[in-house]
Design a binder for these strands. Structure first.
Length: 272
DNA sequence: ATACCGACCTGTCAGC
DNA sequence: TGCTGACAGGTCGGTA
């Protein structure tokens, strides 16, 4: 479900509400599929830890933990990837447990943090405090590094944008929207884009992500943030999900093609 | 290196 | 009403 702006919105919401709280106990569902680390390790790392902060890394939600009685400064990380359909919700204990709830974290404040994920593509793991997911943060990357990412790559530019080892956090919606604003077709080989084109793309990616974060992300079907609030960036989509509808610039019908198994939307006239 | 495909899962919606 | 197929914000591993 969520890309960078949605994950950022969720992480900010969680940070506001549970920073400083302490994990009392952890319940994990019996099926271990969603776990990337052994269940025992996740439980041992989380229990009695203080949540010192919540932040986003690419599409991961990262909880900074101060561990155990000693609350060592070194700490550890609890990392949640929401996959396509994952949600993290803060609940009162008496609230009904939703179908497909795979983890419940009881907090000393009395609230619970619940991980719900119908499609089970989400992943839970723990990692040392120095963990790094690799790739550049799109909002922080500098122009020269951005340009270097694509130089000499024959892969379609959209595939490169979706490659989390290069840039982390850009997904299907924001790749399409960024390419539209930069006037570049999704199938265009990365290596054939001029420096000027890459500069435009560099600006477009940042602009799209910043606007989307400001609007709380895109709510398609069921996305809501940690407070249960919907985002509004879906109202700003210019090509994503608009197959056959007129381009907002030139009225040409928006095209949809499949690229690497993903729907890709573009204006055949505005994007070259 | 690259590109395409299916796999992983469940839910929803359009069409018949 | 019910069935079927397409499709969904993500990633991984196999194959040529």
């Amino acid at each position: 479900m969520p890309e960078l702006p949605e994950v950022e919105t969720i992480a900010q919401g969680l940070a506001k509400r549970i920073t400083g709280d302490v994990v009392q106990s952890v319940w994990l569902g019996e099926k271990p599929e969603p776990l990337k680390s052994p269940a025992g390790e996740i439980v041992a790392t989380l229990e009695h830890s203080r949540i010192a902060g919540v932040r986003r890394m690419g599409k991961h939600i990262v909880f900074d933990l101060e561990q155990g009685r000693v609350r060592s400064a070194r700490g550890a990380l609890w990392i949640v990837h929401l996959g396509m359909s994952g949600r993290l919700q803060i609940c009162e204990p008496q609230e009904d447990v939703a179908k497909h709830t795979h983890a419940i974290i009881k907090l000393e404040s009395g609230r619970e943090l619940r991980f719900v994920d119908p499609r089970r593509f989400g992943r839970l793991s723990v990692a040392p405090a120095n963990f790094d997911a690799g790739g550049f943060e799109p909002l922080d990357v500098e122009l020269k590094d951005f340009v270097a990412l694509f130089r000499g790559r024959k892969t379609p530019i959209k595939s490169a944008l979706l490659n989390q080892k290069l840039l982390r956090g850009v997904g299907n919606i924001y790749a399409d929207e960024s390419l539209f604003r930069a006037g570049i077709r999704p199938r265009r080989r990365a290596s054939t884009i001029t420096h000027e084109g890459l500069h435009k793309l560099f600006l477009s990616v940042k602009e799209v992500l910043r606007e989307a974060i400001a609007l709380g992300g895109s709510s398609i079907s069921d996305y809501v943030d940690a407070d249960g609030e919907e985002g509004f960036f879906q109202l700003q989509h210019r090509v994503y999900g608009r197959e056959g509808e007129p381009c907002l610039v030139c009225k040409t019908p928006v095209k949809r093609v499949v690229l690497g198994g993903r729907s890709s939307h573009y204006c055949p006239k505005c994007q070259k």
